[in-house]
Computed example of a mutant assay.
Amino acid sequence: MERVNQVPAGQPILNVSHFQKRYGDKIAVRDLSLVVEPGDIYGFIGHNGAGKTTLIRSIVGAQGIDGGSIQVAGIDVARDPVAAKRIMAYVPDNPDVYEFMTGIQYLRYLADIFRVPVDARSKRIGELSERLQISDALADPVGTYSHGMRQKLVIIGALMHNPKLLVLDEPFVGLDPVAAHELKQILHELSTRGSAVFFSSHVLEVVEKLCSKVAVIRAGELVTSGTTDEVRGDDSLEDIFLELVEPAGEGGR
C-alpha cells in the first residue's frame, strides 16, 4: 500500500484534551488528556468498565463529547466529524457487518464511500485478504461468516483508504494465531508509513510487545501514560497494570 498523506511536522495525529463524558448523572470519563504522534502504536488499557470504549467511541464520532476536545490531525471531531472520519478508521470490538452482502461487496462498498480508485482497492483487497487468509470466503454472504472472519473483513475494510489514524477496540479477540500475527505486522507497517494506531486490549503481553506507548485508565481517569518502557519500568506491564487498577471503583465502560 502506498504511503499515507503526511501530518504537518509537530502536529499530533490524535490530541485528546481534557475529555469528559457523562451518562446521565454519572461521569464515565473525567478530564482525560493524551497525545498520539505519527508512527505511534499506542495501547490503551484498563479494567472492564474503566472508560476505554467510551473514549474510543467519542474519538471515532460514534457519540458526543461533554467536555474538552478531540482532534485528529488538527481536525476537531465534534466541529467537523465528516472530515475527521475521512482520515481515520475504526475496528469495533463487535464487528457488525451487513449480513446480506458478500465479503467483496462490503469491501467495495467501503471503497466507494472513501473514493478509493478501482486499481488501488483491488490491490489492497487482494493483498490483505491473502495475508489474513480470507480470500476464499469473499464471495460468500457475510451472514455465513464466523466472528473471526467478520473481524478480518472489518480490518481489511478499515485499511482500504490508508487512514492516518486507525482506532481498534479489542482487535485480537476472535483472531486465529496466524491472523493475529499478520495484524501485528500490518500495524507496524502502518506506523512506519507515518500513520498512528490507537487500540484497547486486555491482552497485556501483546500491548507490551507491540506498543511504543501506553496509557492506563482506571474508573474513568487516566492513571499513567508514556512510552511502554517508562510505564512498566523494571516490571512487566501486567504487574504495573494489576498494581494500578486493583483498587478501582465505579467508572465508565
Rank of each mutant, 00 (worst) to 15 (best):
N5G: 15
H202P: 07
R86F: 00
S200F: 00
Y90H: 11
R86W: 09
K26S: 15
V72F: 08
Y42Q: 04
L110A: 01
I134Q: 01
V223A: 14
N94W: 07
G61M: 00
H18I: 11
K209D: 15
A196P: 09
D25R: 14
I240P: 01
L32G: 05
T102C: 08
F19C: 11
S225L: 05
K85C: 11
L132P: 06
A215Q: 11
N15V: 03
M88P: 07
Y90S: 04
A137E: 12
R22G: 09
I125C: 02
F19A: 09
P81Y: 06
S58I: 06
D40Q: 07
H161R: 07
G46R: 09
L168M: 15
V197S: 04
V72C: 04
S200W: 01
Q20I: 12
I56M: 07
I125R: 06
G226I: 08
L242I: 13
H181Q: 13
T54P: 05
Q63P: 08
K209R: 15
A137T: 10
V206W: 01
S135Q: 14
L168Q: 00
I41A: 01
L128Q: 04
V203G: 05
V77P: 04
A9L: 14
S195I: 01
A111W: 02
A248D: 15
V203D: 07
K26L: 15
F198C: 05
A139E: 14
H18S: 15
P81A: 09
